[in-house]
């Protein structure tokens, strides 16, 4: 009996594919919902700062005066809370993971453009 069981297992193992994926050769497994990394679109931002105030790790800093948005990727835990709360669609999550960073403050910096049509020109052109 035991001989047949082991023979079956050996044959199966010889002719079946490995359960692991050949990662660098083929792409890693990802799903649509996978929380890979946070993407910020400056054009959609209204500088309401809800992402900064409700971030569980305080990774995001938004400056209203200078119209800047920055995120420390070493602090960010990619929970997606800011994406859920953002009143416009300025933030979203992409399934791919970020590539590794070596230097410590891995900050991503954006300048938010002043929306052109509606508010009559506030004067200061938001430039870094």
């Amino acid at each position: 009996m035991g001989v047949f069981t082991i023979a079956k297992t050996i044959t199966r193992n010889l002719f079946s594919r490995p359960p692991t994926s050949r990662y660098p050769a083929e792409p890693a497994k990802r799903f649509d919902l996978t929380r890979g990394h946070l993407v910020f679109t400056p054009e959609g931002c209204r500088v309401c700062r809800v992402c900064m105030l409700r971030c569980p790790t305080q990774a995001i800093v938004v400056d209203r005066e200078k119209r800047t948005w920055e995120c420390d990727h070493f602090r960010c835990i990619t929970c997606g809370n800011c994406v859920d709360l953002c009143p416009t669609d300025a933030l979203h999550l992409e399934p791919a993971y970020r590539s590794p960073e070596a230097a410590h403050p891995a900050k991503e910096f954006h300048t938010i453009p002043v929306p052109p049509p509606k508010p009559e020109a506030g004067g200061e052109k938001a430039e870094a």
Binding site: T34, G80, L93
Partner: peptide, 27 residues
């Protein structure tokens, strides 16, 4: 690994699912 795949495809992550919120679920 199969169970983790089910979790990731429905919640967005393998082990820290982040699917629950006060008042319901997120996905």
């Amino acid at each position: 690994e199969h169970v983790l795949d089910d979790l990731e495809s429905t919640t967005g992550n393998r082990v820290i699912q982040g699917a629950c919120k006060v008042g319901g679920v997120r996905h």
